[in-house]
Amino acid sequence: MAQIKKINTPLTEEIIESLHAGDRVAITGVIYTGRDAAHKRLVQTIAEGKPLPVEINGQTIYYVGPCPAKPNQAIGSCGPTTSGRMDTYSPILLDQGQKGMIGKGPRNQSVIDAMKRNKAVYFAAIGGAGAVIARTVRKAQVVAYEDLGPEAIHRLEVVDFPCIVVIDCAGNDLYKIGPEKFRQA
């Protein structure tokens, strides 16, 4: 298995071009959370030509709805949710300059096309490892759509957040390459 590459957000084009499907990375910096409900609002706001509540350009969105933090925690359990539900919205945000996505599970062709067109990268975090991942979050703060509860947009400060590059900016897709290697029937 590949060495772990340490990378920082916001992701530059140079970093993105250096990442390949199958690389393990440790991400440090600021990322934003967003799931179905927040994506729907962001995309509606863009369609109406209004300003977004957070700057998406250059940013990374983590598909997660965390558990509430206990008094001694920055955040509760916070593993990824299924990314496919964001496929309708992601191409629009990628065209607005979003550079990174973190989630779990495959993406459709229109997302992959938008990633190639805009030089973006998609990472997988381990689904169901929410308590492990929570340890890499130093600070969490709701910055938009507070009424959505766990689906609100949070700003997270993470240190060495463990991920795998699953779709790179050339469109290589570990969800296709990986199972192909092990398929026996």
Binding site: V64, G65, Q73, G76, S77, G79, I126, G128, G130
Partner: peptide, 25 residues
């Protein structure tokens, strides 16, 4: 192997720290 190892670590942490093993409760 790496993923299953992380899942096992996660189970242990959740149990010891009395925290949700997955955010989707």
């Amino acid at each position: 192997k790496y993923i299953i190892g992380q899942i096992l670590d996660n189970i242990e942490i959740a149990r010891n720290e009395k925290t949700a093993m997955c955010q989707d409760t």
